[in-house]
């Protein structure tokens, strides 16, 4: 039995009439990246806030390295660090000032606070911007200073709440690299995200959350296998043939086929059993069947399972509908 960084049972948080977190059980092994995947409003941030001692649970319990997040909040605070979804540094202050401030609050003496801040700014490529106010930073730089502020004292457990939402692809890759380096040094990372892709790249285990409940949990491989290997998107030459195409695809693939908003497009699920080759095979069988039925295909594409598809498969409703919840 490996050590658990986080263990929760029946964790509940209620806001008014909404059960934002509704009985969450988690067991997060130490020393790896744990992904919490879900759409906006699924309860990811609320769950993280409870684990980071920012919110008091309304029910159930949670421990961080064996310490209760309510009764031993101070001990938990000395083990964890949180990079929130919204800038958790002071925009009016410069990069250096922000880092030195947090370092001092963590108990570093002045010279140590300055040294550690300077070293982190350098490692994060922010030395040139060190004396500029954070409000003048680009999105990627701001994320980096945010993460730097979280590791001024190397935490045992680091919460990253949607660290790449709103970042361009390059900045997103930089954040991914940083996360890998941090984990390699022995820190456990809990990462929330809306992107299956991101959880897939970084996390060794993933919990999928919807409506405050864990609806699936496992390794990325297990999760994708349960969803299917992906999907095939087909564009027809003639919209009149779509009914026929739908019928052919469902009988060949035995899976859900749905028409898209575009009258000539449709998407079919592939049940690839966790094997890309099988997915490709299915796709070619599907295309052959369409050709045999006389349906003219203009083009097609194979898609990796997206969060939307994970949600469709797990909950029978697309993730995006829940954005307001």
């Amino acid at each position: 039995m490996t050590e658990l960084a986080i263990e929760t049972s029946g964790l509940v948080k209620i806001f008014g009439k909404t059960r934002a977190v509704d009985g969450v059980d988690l067991a997060v092994p130490a020393g790896s990246v744990y992904g919490v995947l879900g759409p906006n409003g699924a309860g990811k941030t609320t769950a993280v806030k409870m684990l980071a001692t920012l919110l008091r649970p309304d029910g159930g319990q949670a421990t961080v390295f064996g310490h209760d997040v309510v009764r031993e909040a101070d001990t938990v605070r000395s083990l964890v660090s949180l990079t929130g979804q919204y800038a958790s540094v002071d925009e009016d202050l410069s990069g250096t000032e922000n880092l030195v401030l947090i370092a001092r609050l963590l108990g570093h003496r002045k010279p140590a606070a300055r040294d550690r801040s300077a070293a982190l700014l350098e490692a994060f490529g922010l030395t040139d911007a060190a004396d500029r106010q954070v409000k003048n930073y680009s999105g990627g730089m701001r994320r980096r200073i945010d993460i730097a502020a979280s590791i001024l004292r190397t935490p045992e457990l680091l919460f990253l709440d949607e660290p790449t939402t709103g970042l361009d692809p390059r900045s997103r890759n930089q954040v991914w690299d940083i996360v890998r380096i941090i984990v390699a040094q022995g820190t456990t990372v809990m990462l929330t995200t809306q992107y299956l892709d991101e959880a897939d790249h970084l996390a060794s285990r993933i919990a999928v959350i919807d409506h405050g409940r864990v609806i699936a949990e496992g390794t990325p491989g297990e999760l994708k296998a349960s969803v299917g290997a992906g999907s095939i998107q087909v564009r027809l030459r003639d919209a009149a043939q779509r009914e026929e195409a739908l019928r052919v695809l469902s009988s060949v693939l035995g899976e859900a086929v749905r028409p898209e908003a575009d009258p000539v497009a449709l998407t079919a699920q592939l049940s690839g059993e966790d094997s890309d080759r099988e997915a490709a095979e299915q796709a070619s069988r599907a295309l052959a069947a369409l050709a045999a039925a006389g349906v003219v295909v203009d083009n097609f594409a194979l898609g990796q399972p997206t969060l939307d598809e994970v949600f469709l498969a797990l909950t029978d409703h697309p993730a995006t509908e829940e954005a307001a919840a």
């Binding site: 070293a119 490692a123 994060f124 930089q174 380096i181 040094q185």
Partner: peptide, 18 residues
């Protein structure tokens, strides 16, 4: 910018708890 793995690692390696 590419994260400097060695430098960042060196900073993180000091797990000193002030």
């Amino acid at each position: 910018y590419a994260p400097a793995a060695d430098r960042l690692g060196a900073v993180l390696a000091s797990r000193e708890q002030p």
